[in-house]
Amino acid sequence: MEKRGTCGVQDADASEVYREGELIACPQCDALYRVVPLAHGERAQCVRCGTVLISTRNRAFVRVIALAITVVILMIAATIFPFLSVSVAGLTNSSSVLDAALAFAGGPMFGLSLAVAALIVAIPILRAALVIYVLTPMAFGRAPWPGAIPAFRFSEALRPWSMAEIFVIGVAVALVKVADLARIGFGPAFWFFAALVVVIVLKDGYMNRWTVWKALDQQDRS
């Protein structure tokens, strides 16, 4: 990996004349680079700290849009259908993802309920919707819809707060905890949610942030 970090960006000299759109700096360590064209499949990493600056693994907005639509559909299905059920001594209770999110709804824990609902349902679905809104017109070669720039910025800021994958591990731990207390049944929503996590990871993996910003930039100016 000798070329690691050297493709796509060059060290910029301090004497470099400032030209808008040509220079970028590593957001993690402030090292300055000049953008040069990358071949498909290459990526540019910061020489100093290793942060990926540009990745061209996939420029296709269409794939990201398709995955984001899948996220929305699966999330709606996962909240409608029964998620898990337990039965003890003839009594059965089933719960949906929303029931789990709203488990704290009574009394002083209401705020926690809202937070959990946001982390596992609302924020993942909102991020997918924002991505669809931002990328769809550009995928068809049109100018971005109004507010696309703040929409994408908001979607990026929400990234650490989307916790569907952590919820899935929580489910696994919870199942072990009740295993000797009761019999557990899996509803369709359980499988939707498991699939959802994979699709979210793929969507975020295929999303090339730098390309999106560049596209928004160009569309804005022309």
């Binding site: 337990v86 209770n93 719960s95 789990a100 929580g170 919870a174 009740v178």
Partner: peptide
């Protein structure tokens, strides 16, 4: 956050 989610799931599920 895992443990918070565990509590949320158990509290909604185990209500018999």
């Amino acid at each position: 956050m895992i443990d918070v989610f565990v509590v949320a799931i158990l509290s909604s599920l185990v209500q018999l």
